[in-house]
Design a protein around this nucleic acid. Structure first.
Length: 444
DNA sequence: ATAGGGTTAG
């Protein structure tokens, strides 16, 4: 005890910052922060590290407690990015009004408030779908002493598209130069994404050409990814491949495994599985290593498009030869594939083999299997599985619960059905219409 | 980490 106290007294703000940086658990970081005898000469670094962790984990009560201390600690001067970060975490926690409160308080922290935190708040309202508050904030920019920049406009363009108006986004794009704001590469990326979302792929591709010729802004890899994804999704594979070739030609653009994974999945979906090998060879030649996502999308391709389960299992070996470890998604994909073609016994075999393969089934695995066995009307099997999943703290999906109850209603006696209804009720898995259906059947 | 993308399972 005595040594511990002594140690704590010797803790310097610098040392505390190092410890906070290493601590992954936000609650442990909080205890660490509060461990030295008070008052303690915390450095701004210490506040920043702890608040960032608390914000990331959305632990708002301690976050606000530490924020109060930071506000009162006049030795340190907070930087605006910290507030931007906390505003974003309020947005992720669906608390836009608290984000707004903090935005208003920034000057009281001896920190000047700029268009950056204003943009964070705009983004918070957008992410929370609060478009009225968004508009009102936009029109009050002047009263907060900020002037919108390109970033503000980029956020605004996404906001107007939420209410379905592509033309309004173009109006904003045209408005930018009238306010002395030049579009950036993100502005074009935003517009291209908007056009893709609205299936205006020709316009999106043409904007990619025009941004360079008319505005002298070079498309970056994000823009290529947006276009390649959209083209793959709508089956325009040759155009997607053409863009991939374009990236290869550009010295300052880099292909990545994600682009190849997207293309590989698209090849499977369009029945051009033969081309996949070519693409894998090309990846190797370009020194891009396939990762779990690459292999898993091949597994999905073999299971969903080809119904070739031997090939899917072969991919599991292939990924190990390449230094990748098959993961939950690999197994869930195969199990789901078996289930989709009603081969629930095969699905169950793999499910039971998972622990031996170093992967524990999760709630997704259980739910896939539960739904599939219900669809095959093997309700005795479902009951065994249900017991097992409940003992692990998992519950079936609402869809599965409904299937199960509907399935056993005609087949088993009322008492049996009732016992499961009670169980599902306790698990909070009973929807009102299931209730009504069951009750009306029981009365008959 | 002020704004745009990120795959693969339910």
């Amino acid at each position: 005890m005595a040594t511990k106290v002594k140690k704590a007294t010797r803790l310097s703000p610098f040392r505390l910052a190092t410890l906070l940086r290493q601590e992954k658990d936000p609650n442990a970081a909080l205890s660490l922060f509060l461990s030295p005898p008070q008052p303690f000469p915390y450095s701004y670094q210490c506040y920043d590290l702890l608040l960032t962790k608390l914000a990331y984990s959305r632990l708002f009560p301690p976050l606000e407690q530490i924020l109060d201390r930071l506000r009162a600690d006049e030795r340190v001067t907070p930087k605006e990015p910290l507030f931007c970060h906390i505003i974003s975490s309020y947005a992720r926690g669906r608390l836009p009004s608290r984000a707004h409160d903090l935005f208003l308080l920034i000057p009281s922290f001896r920190c000047s408030r700029t268009v950056k935190s204003f943009n964070s708040l705009l983004d918070a309202y957008l992410r929370c779908g609060n478009l009225e508050a968004f508009e009102s904030l936009w029109h009050n920019a002047g009263s907060y002493g900020v002037y919108p920049d390109a970033c503000s406009y980029n956020i605004y363009m996404r906001a107007v598209c939420l209410s379905g108006s592509v033309s309004r986004a173009w109006e904003l794009f045209d408005e930018m130069p009238t306010r002395g704001i030049s579009p950036t590469v993100v502005t074009f990326g935003t517009l291209i994404a908007i056009l893709c979302d609205n299936l205006m792929l020709r316009e999106a591709l043409s904007l990619k050409e025009r941004m360079l010729t008319l505005y002298n802004v070079k498309p970056n890899v994000v823009i290529y990814i947006t276009l390649i994804k959209a083209l793959c999704k709508s089956g325009e594979l040759s155009k997607a491949f053409k863009l991939k070739e374009e990236i290869l030609l550009h010295k300052d653009l880099e292909l990545n495994s994600f682009i190849y994974t997207t293309l590989i999945r698209a090849l499977f979906s369009s029945g051009q599985k033969g081309e996949v090998t070519v693409l894998l060879e090309e990846m190797k030649a370009n020194r891009i290593t396939p990762d779990n996502a690459t292999f898993n999308s091949m597994i999905a391709g073999f299971c969903e498009d080809e119904k070739n389960f031997n090939a899917a299992f072969e991919v599991l070996n292939e990924m190990q030869r390449n230094g990748c470890k098959p993961d939950l998604i690999s197994y869930n994909t195969i199990i789901n594939g078996f289930c989709k073609v009603a081969r629930w016994r095969d699905a169950q075999d793999l499910f039971e083999d998972m622990p031996r393969r170093g992967c524990k089934p999760d709630i997704v695995t259980y739910r896939i299997l539960f739904d599939a066995i219900c669809n095959c009307k093997e309700f005795k099997e479902v009951v065994v599985l249900l017991d097992e999943m409940v003992s692990k703290g998992y519950t079936p999906s609402l869809y599965g619960t409904k299937k199960f109850l509907e399935g056993i209603m005609g087949r088993y006696d009322g008492l049996f059905v009732e016992s499961f209804m009670c169980q599902f009720m306790k698990l909070n898995r009973l929807e009102v219409n299931s209730w009504e259906k069951v009750v009306s059947r029981l009365r008959v």
